[in-house]
Simulated scan of single mutants.
Amino acid sequence: MALTALNVVSDPIYADAADVAKAMQPEEALFCFSADRLKARLALFADGFPGTVSYAVKSNPSREVVTALSQAGLTHWDVASVHEMALVHSIQPAAHFHYHNPVKSRREILDAYSKYGCRRFAVDAREEVAKIAAIVGDDRSVELAVRFVLPRDRATAAHDFSTKFGAPEHIAVELLQDIQRRGYVPVMTFHPGSQSRDPNVYVRHIEAAHRIAKAAGVHISKLNVGGGFPASYPLSKPAPLQSYFSLIAEATTRFFGKGTEPALECEPGRGLVANCMSLLTRIKLVCSDGDDIFLNDGIYGGLMEFMQAPVLQPPYRVIRGGKVLEGPSKPWKVFGPTCDPLDVLPAKLDLPAGIRDEDFIEFGTLGAYGIATSTMFNGYGNHAVIPVDEVFNG
């Protein structure tokens, strides 16, 4: 996939989070964002994936990220709501949307179709097909993507996507036939699960897509292999991205036949944006008679996913006076700023024994599901996004 870059971005003001901490002395937690790091990651997908690359907006809906991707030439966007469409449309009016949330209200379908020009909708139920058809009528440019699901046979992902959405194979066959009978463009899609560590899970789904299409007697022009592409965390080190791309291309040709393969699409979220942001927090209190510290952010803020999936523990470092603090370490129990006793990280962190109030702790690799899942509980969570040249990833 080739991208055409638009040279619109101004140079970042700060070198990194340590520079931000020294210059700004921020009282509130904030995110440091490297547009250059994001664009470099997008280039890996654009150059390596054998098809169209879209961005799963849900993973990071900040204007800074959407703007940088748009400026780098991305034109396709995987969205889960019309609110995400509105955001992207305000930045890129000619955006192409893949509305891949399989459950949508009638008003959401109408707004997506009429207001934002969306012509791709995911479905996993007969009722959803009928609902969309009642709104779009005989518009044969509409693509309906059947989202199918396979039984989960082993833990290959940090978050299992098989429990909420996706039609089993026999229903997927019926949906494809119904879509073709109604005259819409049949497409197929799946999601292997977030932070998929085994690239062979894509092969298994591509084989199933061919099996379903063959049983339905339907030719699919496009196959969306979903997201799931992993980022690198201290406790979750994935295979290189290129191994995913190569296996996906090889499997598509092997199962569908050379020259008759569907056009491929993907919709990375975490794998695209995780390493473009870090979270800069500040210590509010160090309990000298124990091992407790309190930060100005926590699980109701930028660290929510760490609580949900401890394997995605972000890398971290302490900053004092604009420099990384070294020295002997000890385990610390880390609480967030809210009044809720649940606001505590799921594991102790090894931090310098000499940390003190007003030191900063930077958590890296939080470009995905950091700012996206932050709440305003107790008034915390209104994170600024500060541009930097380099962002910490451990």
Results as ranks from 00 to 15, higher is better:
Gly367Thr: 13
Tyr184Arg: 03
Gly302Tyr: 02
Asn224Gln: 07
Gly226Lys: 01
Val334Lys: 07
Glu108Met: 04
Ala251Val: 09
Ser246Met: 07
Asn296Phe: 09
Ala112Cys: 00
Ala167Gln: 00
Ala231Thr: 13
Ala368Arg: 02
Met376Ser: 13
Phe161Arg: 01
Ile293Pro: 03
Gln25Cys: 09
Phe165Met: 01
Pro314Asp: 08
Gly259Leu: 11
Arg140Glu: 11
Ala17Trp: 05
Asp139Pro: 03
Asp343Glu: 08
Asp138Arg: 15
Arg106Gln: 13
Phe49Pro: 05
Ser70Tyr: 12
Pro352Glu: 08
Val344Ala: 13
Val65Thr: 09
Val391Asp: 03
Leu312Arg: 02
Ala112Lys: 02
Phe49Arg: 08
Leu280Val: 08
Ala56Trp: 00
His191Pro: 01
Val82Thr: 14
Gly228Gln: 08
Met188Leu: 14
Asp291Ser: 15
Ala17Asp: 06
Phe363Ser: 08
Asp47Cys: 08
Ala208Met: 14
Glu127Gln: 09
Gln242Leu: 15
Val88Arg: 00
Arg107Ile: 14
Leu176His: 00
Val9Lys: 09
Ser288Cys: 11
Val324Tyr: 10
Ala372Asn: 05
His219Cys: 12
Phe392Leu: 11
Lys104Met: 04
Leu241Phe: 13
Val391Phe: 05
Val20Ala: 05
Glu250Met: 09
Gly271Met: 11
Glu265Arg: 11
Leu345Gln: 09
Gly379Pro: 07
Gly166Phe: 03
Gly227Lys: 04
Ala80Asn: 00
Glu326Met: 12
Glu261Ala: 15
Arg204Pro: 02
Gln195Asn: 12
Phe97Ile: 01
Tyr300Glu: 04
Ala86Ile: 05
Arg204Cys: 04
Val344Gln: 07
Gln25Trp: 03
Gly183Phe: 03
Met277Ala: 13
Ser54Tyr: 00
Asp359His: 07
Val129Phe: 03
His210Ala: 10
Asp160Leu: 01
Leu42Trp: 05
Gly227Thr: 11
Leu44Ser: 11
His205Leu: 04
Phe190Asp: 02
Lys284Ser: 12
Asp289Arg: 13
Arg140Asp: 14
Pro240Cys: 05
Lys330Cys: 07
Phe335Pro: 00
Trp332Arg: 05
Thr373Asp: 13
His205Asp: 01
Ala112Leu: 00
Val324Ala: 13
Ser54Val: 13
Val388Thr: 04
Leu325Pro: 00
Asp389Val: 12
Thr375Ile: 05
Asp124Gln: 01
Gly117Met: 06
Ser90Thr: 13
Gly364Glu: 09
Glu305Leu: 15
Phe256Met: 05
Val79Leu: 00
Pro151Glu: 09
Leu30His: 05
Gly228Phe: 06
Glu64Trp: 02
Val385Arg: 06
Gly394Leu: 10
Lys323Phe: 10
Cys276Gly: 06
Phe49Cys: 07
Leu366Pro: 04
Gln92Met: 06
Pro168Leu: 09
Lys237Gln: 14
Leu144Thr: 01
Glu362Leu: 10
Phe335Asn: 10
Asp11His: 10
Ser221Met: 08
Tyr380Pro: 03
Thr67Lys: 12
Glu362His: 10
Arg282Leu: 03
Asp292Asn: 14
Thr4Ser: 12
Arg120Ile: 15
Gln92Lys: 12
Pro387Arg: 04
Lys39Asn: 14
Asp178Val: 14
Leu150Ala: 09
Ala172Glu: 06
Val388Tyr: 06
Val273Gln: 06
Arg63Phe: 12
Leu69Trp: 02
